[in-house]
Amino acid sequence: MSQQKKIYGVMAEFEEAGELLVAAHKAREAGFTRLDAYSPLPIEGLSEAVGFESTRLPLIVLIGGIVGAIGGFALQYYIHVIEYPQNIGGRPFNSWPSFVPITFETTVLCAALAAVLGMLALNGLPSPYHPVFNAPRFKLASRHRFFLCIKARDPKFDLEETKEFLLGLEPHEVCEIED
């Protein structure tokens, strides 16, 4: 609708991890749902505070693990029982205890690959452009500052009101982010 710049969201900068946590809680209480927090270090409870919902990633990892387990065992079974059976010290061809370590390894391998690839697929990485980097001081998020962003997608978002709300949380600075 608006012909001028498109807004991605409003970003507030905090100096302390605790302030960010409090601000995130207050924003949630005020009814905002589309917010995100950026911090140079992990803060316990922050993901709950910004309303992080569990993703489908565990399911993807589980499926990866199951595929790895079945695939690993099936590969060994095929080799040792069907394709190239060998009598090794009188043991049965399906010498399953010997298959377990490899099965374990393929399980872990496939689960780990599923975790990495699934994570990248779900969070849209690698992403050459992201609007939050338009915030002038955002590079400090990897050093010693803490940022809270309320996105324009939020149903309760109104540029001026949201800005005022964030200013009420006494941040170091508040800025608009262009999309």
Binding site: G90, P97, P101
Partner: peptide
């Protein structure tokens, strides 16, 4: 537990 079983299985 499994390591013990595997070693004894392999040693036979």
């Amino acid at each position: 537990s499994f390591s013990q079983l595997l070693l004894i299985w392999a040693g036979n």
